[in-house]
Design a protein around this nucleic acid. Structure first.
Lengths: 188, 188
DNA sequence: TCATTTCGTCTACTATAAGAGACGAAATTT
DNA sequence: AAATTTCGTCTCTTATAGTAGACGAAATGA
């Protein structure tokens, strides 16, 4: 279980306890309302179990919240300050492509990602990935060839590109050294 | 498993398959990227297993999406037309309080709920439940005593109240017959 | 045409989520 | 103060989530 998941699990646990206590419900009461055993809810709140989608659905139902909203609240619950050593990092085992989530979960829809793209690596994205967001790409090191639909942009260190309407895109590093760039995006 | 959960599970399954296929990834490829076995991903996509929060976290990580966003997309994926017989209903076993989700998941932030509140029943909500939404209450049958912080509103059939700033609220049915009302709310 | 690879499903097994009920601590009642 | 209730945790069992690897079908290549 990596850092990202640990945070998620802990945040979900806290959020469920919070929603329950806000309503003044005991474990037994929530158990009765949701149909999930109180032993299980206790374990979930203490991070001793990872709830299934089924159980999360029942709990969010009892709270009268859509599941996505319960999760969003959980993610928002964390700190406004995200220390460098707590930022979630994800690395593609195959290409060495690395993505670091800079922003705290409380991003108010604004997210910063720092990406390292090894030389020669090509990363395609479907148009749907850009459907509900605006984003900019700021190259901080190396060079990047960014294909936005049919249009190809050659970006060098310091360049910053704002993306247009959603299109299938490809990130490609044509150079001999790692490319580094920052993605800034706002949701919706 | 009630209707709400069935839909959720099915929608999650579809969404995961969609995100995977959009990226042109095979089960093996997603398995490698996410650290979840391809057998498990196959079961999840075919609704033969309910993924744990841990596994959902790994999958959303591989897609580069926050978990709440993946779930939100899953919920949005359903039809624009929500047939009456497919609307999720939740009933409090203790009080008989019933809530029906009228709107399709594609509500664009607009949700309609129809509530039946039995005579004499009292339902409190914490202020936090109203934090990121505007809502109105429209009484369609019986009468409703709605306490918004210190202020108490007596609502009769046909009345419609717009809620103010977030405060702890209480729904109470002072009458002798079921109260029925519609909640219209916009998120954020 | 036959071999090789790739894909998703299936089988068998292990790890763990989930439920039923017991238990001790704390609060409440009489 | 003793009895009763309420609360959250713990124990034990069962159900099922999750993994490793085999398998047949389809696609690809020689």
């Amino acid at each position: 279980m990596d850092l990202h998941e640990q945070q998620a699990a802990g945040a979900i646990a806290e959020r469920i306890r919070l929603e329950r206590e806000d309503r003044g419900w005991s474990l037994s009461e929530l158990a009765e309302r949701s149909g999930v055993s109180k032993a299980m809810i206790s374990k979930i709140e203490r991070c001793e179990a990872s709830p299934t989608a089924t159980v999360l659905g029942r709990l969010s139902g009892a709270f009268g919240l859509p599941l996505s909203r319960l999760l969003a609240l959980a993610e928002q619950a964390s700190e406004r300050l995200m220390r460098a050593d707590r930022q979630a990092i994800w690395k593609d085992p195959e290409t060495g492509y690395t993505r670091r989530a800079i922003s705290p979960a409380t991003g108010n829809g604004l997210e910063l990602l720092e990406v390292t793209l090894p030389a020669g690596v090509r990363i395609p994205y479907p148009a749907s990935a850009f459907a509900f967001q605006r984003q900019q790409i700021w190259v901080t090191g190396g060079e990047l060839e960014f294909a936005e639909g049919e249009v190809v942009h050659h970006l060098r260190q310091g360049d910053c590109l704002e993306l247009g309407s959603p299109q299938p895109c490809v990130f490609f590093n044509p150079g001999k050294i790692d490319a580094r760039y920052v993605i800034a995006l706002t949701r919706r």
